[in-house]
Simulated scan of single mutants.
Amino acid sequence: MTPQAAAPGAPVAGPTRGVFAPTLALGPVVVIAGAVLGGGRAALAACLGFLVVVAFFGLGQLVTRRLSVAVDPPRFVARASAIVLGQLIFLLLVILALRDAAWLDGPAFGLSALAVALAWQVFQVIAFVRSRRVVFDAPDKTRQDGTPPT
């Protein structure tokens, strides 16, 4: 049986909506925590960490939606896994590049990036589990002998 064309972004449309709102709500929390624990410089670093993670994972969601059009499930999973791995590698490279920046509070940046990335992943799993997905193929329009039903 050939895979049927899905609506653009169908496998990730629900999870995308279920991830952005709770993750964006976490932004002020990490910035306030940075301000309370480390002052203005830490709050700025926490805000930057939040923005970097949301930009990386948001862009990954958009790419995943674009690549999920009319793709069979094994290819979709492979593509989505590659995108997530790429996101995590690029995020690690950004964190490593900024770790020795004198103008940045490194621990506040790293902890806020870690907290937001973990929250994004948790909310993404929750949203995907709650989304409705077809888990079986539509029945064939032919009988077992290959003739159409009468």
Rank of each mutant, 00 (worst) to 15 (best):
54 V>A: 14
80 A>Q: 06
97 A>C: 14
120 W>C: 00
107 P>R: 06
135 V>F: 15
142 T>S: 11
3 P>Q: 05
124 Q>K: 03
92 L>I: 05
96 L>K: 03
135 V>N: 06
27 G>H: 12
31 V>H: 13
140 D>P: 13
119 A>H: 15
113 A>V: 09
30 V>I: 04
96 L>M: 04
113 A>I: 07
104 L>H: 00
16 T>C: 03
139 P>D: 13
88 L>Y: 03
143 R>L: 15
147 T>Y: 10
140 D>T: 13
94 V>G: 08
17 R>E: 12
91 L>W: 09
59 L>R: 15
94 V>D: 13
133 R>A: 12
75 R>C: 10
130 R>F: 12
14 G>F: 07
95 I>G: 12
42 A>F: 12
133 R>N: 12
128 F>L: 04
80 A>T: 09
37 L>K: 12
136 F>I: 10
61 Q>P: 04
103 W>N: 05
101 A>G: 08
102 A>T: 04
123 F>E: 05
9 G>Y: 06
87 Q>G: 09
103 W>K: 01
112 S>K: 03
72 D>G: 07
85 L>R: 10
20 F>Q: 04
35 A>Q: 02
51 L>W: 13
12 V>Q: 11
141 K>I: 15
36 V>P: 03
72 D>R: 15
16 T>M: 08
77 V>G: 02
32 I>C: 11
150 T>K: 05
72 D>P: 07
125 V>D: 09
144 Q>E: 15
138 A>G: 08
90 F>G: 11
32 I>L: 15
22 P>L: 10
42 A>H: 09
61 Q>A: 14
105 D>F: 01
20 F>A: 04
64 T>Y: 14
47 C>G: 14
139 P>S: 08
83 I>F: 12
66 R>F: 11
51 L>Y: 04
88 L>F: 12
135 V>Q: 10
6 A>G: 14
112 S>R: 12
